[in-house]
């Protein structure tokens, strides 16, 4: 079975997207970053959700968005950035090690992928192509860009 959750820190302000670019002049757009986990698992869905809430979410500052739909609306586009499977993703590694040590009986983790998702907002001139060029290194990343419902 597959479960996708997205976690967002609601204390983090929207930030200036220009700072992600190689030419950091003001481009009039902002971004928000979330973490998106995709679990391939067997066993109890609620046990997995318990795990997510007690290990991956900070109850004070973070919101858990359960399901594959994006946790923001009105964005122009979003970028999902993942490390290639052959590379060491340290967060994933420590999550997997923890799950292995716990030896949960009511669910098992078969596969996990972690993406950092960047939502872009506003009326500026930053194109997805620009973002891809300046944020993605094809040597280590897999990535995709999806347009949202927001208008530029």
């Amino acid at each position: 079975m597959r479960k996708i959750v997205e976690i967002h820190n609601h204390f983090q302000p929207a930030k200036d997207a220009s700072n992600l670019l190689y030419t950091p002049a003001d481009h009039g757009m902002t971004y928000r970053e979330t973490r998106r986990y995709s679990f391939q698992y067997s066993g109890s869905d609620s046990a997995l959700l318990d795990f997510v809430q007690s290990v991956l979410v900070d109850p004070v500052s973070e919101d858990l968005h359960d399901g594959p739909s994006p946790c923001f609306k009105d964005y122009i586009f979003h970028l999902d950035l993942m490390l290639k499977p052959s590379l060491l993703d340290l967060e994933k590694e420590y999550i997997r090690n923890y799950v292995r040590d716990q030896a949960y009986t009511d669910w098992t983790l078969d596969e996990l992928s972690v993406a950092h998702r960047y939502y872009f907002f506003g009326k500026g001139d930053i194109t997805p192509q620009r973002i891809a060029r300046d944020m993605v290194n094809p040597v280590i990343h897999t990535w995709n860009i999806v347009y949202g419902t927001g208008t530029a």
């Binding site: 290990v55 991956l56 900070d58 340290l90 967060e91 420590y94 923890y98």
Partner: peptide
């Protein structure tokens, strides 16, 4: 502690 990769202090807390 444990790299703080999940969030700072979480794994040590657990």
């Amino acid at each position: 502690s444990y790299g703080d990769y999940i969030m700072a202090g979480r794994l040590a807390q657990l």
